[in-house]
Design a protein around this nucleic acid. Structure first.
Lengths: 251, 251
DNA sequence: CCTATTTGACCAAACGATCGATAGACTAAT
DNA sequence: ATTAGTCTATCGATCGTTTGGTCAAATAGG
């Protein structure tokens, strides 16, 4: 244990012409990202309060104080993770929905983005869902504002659909049910399971449309009838740099 | 602060004929329940690791060591809360579903029970959902076994409905989506909101049936077409003694 | 019924371990 | 020569848990 960062870049200017492995700035940026990813992993696994700063720094392979060089407190790590989740989620959905007018198509797209995000970034999503309540003060208010803005896009879409007679009016509980059922993906989805992400998004969009009683000309609407974003574009839009894609090396 | 239990029962046998306020056994049982409710409240509010035993005992109005008279560790409190949640949830759903054969009716009843439980016992439900992962060893395995048994009732119902041609086949993800969307109720439902519990259960059963494409003779099925449990019976079945119905007196 | 004894239900105080955070030294890249 | 980045070592506070006691209700003996 206690394998730390002792700046071991294999480089030597003296004599040999070997170029630097990477600049100091790049090394530093990589360390910071590694810390965020490690914190994200551990927060999702053990919860914010169940994770110590020693757990984080050891798993990231740096000393405790190195962590404090990048973040001024443990809370700031949580805030960083949560904020990035909300920002990417909001940006990707707004971008996807921007040029869609039809409410059913909008809803299908929103569900697809939401599902893709939670399937692709389960750890970060879980942290943002469960642990953000550990935030206090301004940080908490900021996150809540972001979340409210995100949910408003859903609310507007559902309202428009109801007004247009495309959706059954199920009140505000429908929005919460739809969001919740797709958010849950982060808890159980595994890429090696019965569905790849593209099919998962399709399936969930179908379920969401059915739940809202989406219909056109008296006929129930399915995803097949609609134009939904290409799955590669989807995955690119929900990409989240701080999502840990493998277990941190130090446990 | 530090208002403790100093056995203050206002009673005196000498002279007056005043009867004992309550037996020692009853007092003790009430203290134990108060501790469980307080722990449940705080776990749901701050998480298991975010709650200290001093927080619990102070909020319950007893000394720290009094808590250890009833529970041998903090983990045991969490286990007690979680186990009771799973037991009541499993018992109430099995009892409700016992004499229903029709898959659509079964699903509607399952959703209604699940929704009622989470609306009526939101704090305990949140603890069982989020914090049970803090459990380890045998306690964790026990809880998982209970949860799996509960989910199996859902899986069987959905399978039966698909086989009977009543439901659209949406695979295992449908079960998870249905459960998740109703579990989320614990996070947002408030009895003074737009729906009382009876209407909430109806609404969710409707959404669940729609999600599964439930139909009979080519016509979509709604709750109105089905026999679902009376709401009073429902509420009685999901009653959970350890759900804290008011904020503990000490914070 | 009265009294002596046991015991159930608590309390205050303290334990070592771990917590988040800081101080100050060191090192290698600029 | 400077400084960005990391180290080791340590801080006081708080953590979950235990110890040793107190006191009144319950129980037993007369």
């Amino acid at each position: 244990m206690a394998t730390t960062n002792q700046t071991g870049g294999s480089r030597h200017t003296k004599g040999g012409r070997m170029k630097a492995t990477s600049s100091r700035r790049a090394q530093s940026a990589r360390t910071e990202l590694r810390l965020l990813r490690t914190a994200c992993w551990l927060f999702s696994e053990r919860g914010f309060h169940g994770t110590g700063i020693r757990d984080i720094s050891e798993a990231a392979g740096v000393a405790v104080s190195a962590m404090y060089y990048y973040a001024s407190s443990k809370d700031e790590l949580l805030e960083a993770v949560t904020r990035r989740v909300m920002e990417v989620l909001a940006a990707s959905s707004e971008e996807t929905v921007r040029d869609i007018d039809d409410p059913a198509e909008r809803l299908a797209a929103l569900i697809a983005v939401h599902a893709a995000f939670h399937a692709r970034n389960p750890r970060a999503a879980k942290v943002a869902d469960h642990e953000f309540q550990a935030l206090t003060g301004q940080a908490r208010r900021d996150i809540l504002r972001l979340r409210d803005a995100y949910e408003k896009v859903w609310a507007d879409t559902l309202e428009a659909g109801v007004r247009a007679g495309v959706f059954t009016d199920r009140g505000n509980v429908a929005r919460l049910a739809l969001l919740q059922m797709a958010t849950g993906i982060a808890h159980w989805y595994h890429p090696n399971g019965e569905l790849d992400i593209a099919r998962l998004c399709e399936r969930f969009a179908d379920m969401g449309l059915a739940l809202m009683g989406a219909s056109r000309d008296g006929r129930p609407l399915q995803v097949g009838d609609l134009r939904i974003p290409d799955s590669e574009l989807l995955l690119q839009r929900v990409e989240l740099s701080i999502e840990p894609r493998r277990k941190p090396t130090g446990v």
